[in-house]
């Protein structure tokens, strides 16, 4: 890891100013930044520690939603009573991510900014070609080992999967990312790679994430996050789904449904097509199967990642079944 200067931000404004300087990077939990610095992917000249800033780690519930400070730890949010009661998909996405130690370190703001786990991206010495790391250098993954690469939202420049779990739940629940004065819908915060895979988030130099805001909804109250991976725990998603559903008084007709996918796309992937065919319908095994098949509309396969297609369809179906009212076939 290349050496850098270290300083502590004294205030949010100080952090903003410092982060706008060339070569400076914010340090929150450090679990992405220091990892990538060790890989030789990140080489900050100055590291600006924001973990000593006060008042940015609160979880504040009100009747219309919850505001979670950017410095709240993953572990604190995962176990917050209000989060578990009103936004269970958020809690489930968090406690199934990383490990207990990492969740005690990692912050909500840093979590949204985590980078891809594409093995080519993480190894600059062995694989110089990576458009995300070095725009215009090519993509070592295309034609390589692609088991973990995305099938949705890819471009000719980059097929890297967005690895985050929390972000999938946030996109499903229509959360907003608060950047000080400005707010961005979670879905719009994560960018498609297109021809500029180096740009992953709708955040400008000099901006920092101060909070996330999740609105209350019946679908959020009845939500879940299902994560399937290569080992039972402590692994990134091979495929995952955040699902939230609200039913009509009859207990079987779907009034509102939200579905987003993880582990299979270049950004957290909301699937409006799945939602549209189920809305107003009675839940049945046939309806679920028909809807789940739409989850991978537009998918592009690159070699080994073919398995993600059927996998994520089944994950969507299973997540819906897990949230259906008791007594429905």
């Amino acid at each position: 890891m290349r050496n850098f200067a270290y300083r502590r931000a004294g205030s949010v404004d100080d952090a903003r100013r410092a982060a706008a300087e060339a070569g400076a990077m914010l340090l929150a939990g450090g679990t992405t930044l220091l990892d990538l610095a060790k890989c030789g992917v990140a080489a900050p000249e100055t590291v600006v520690d924001i973990t000593h800033l006060r008042g940015l780690d609160t979880i504040a519930h009100d009747p219309s939603g919850v505001t979670i400070g950017a410095l709240a730890k993953m572990s604190a949010v995962a176990t917050d009573r209000g989060i578990c009661a009103h936004y269970p998909a958020v809690s489930e996405a968090l406690w199934q991510a990383a490990s207990a130690q990492l969740r005690n370190m990692a912050t909500i703001g840093g979590n949204l900014m985590q980078r891809t786990r594409c093995a080519y991206f993480r190894d600059p010495v062995a694989f110089p070609a990576c458009n995300k790391r070095n725009p215009g250098s090519g993509c070592a993954a295309i034609g390589g080992v692609t088991r973990n690469h995305a099938v949705l939202g890819t471009s000719q420049s980059c097929i890297a999967t967005n690895p985050g779990d929390l972000a999938v739940a946030l996109v499903a629940l229509d959360a907003e990312i608060v950047l000080g004065e400005r707010r961005v819908a979670a879905d719009a915060f994560f960018l498609l790679p297109g021809a500029t895979p180096q740009r992953e988030h709708a955040i400008e130099p000099g901006e920092i994430i101060t909070a996330i805001r999740i609105p209350v909804s019946a679908a959020a109250c009845n939500s879940t996050y299902l994560k399937v991976r290569g080992r039972q725990s402590y692994e990134f998603a091979a495929a995952s789904a955040a699902v939230g559903m609200e039913f009509e008084a009859d207990g079987r007709t779907i009034r509102d449904i939200r579905v987003a996918l993880g582990g299979v796309a270049t950004k957290p992937w909301r699937v409006h097509a799945v939602e549209a065919v189920l809305k107003g319908q009675e839940l049945s095994p046939e309806a679920i199967d028909r809807a789940a098949a739409l989850a991978t509309e537009g998918a592009v396969i690159h070699g080994d990642n073919r398995t993600k297609i059927s996998l994520v369809q089944r994950v969507v179906a299973r997540a819906i079944i897990n949230r259906k009212p008791r007594g429905i076939a």
Binding site: G30, T31, D35, T51, A100, Q101, N104, M105
Partner: peptide, 13 residues
């Protein structure tokens, strides 16, 4: 009092 990883923590932090 919280378990963390010392390899991804700066001494300065």
């Amino acid at each position: 009092g919280q378990r963390v990883l010392a390899c991804l923590t700066l001494a300065a932090q």
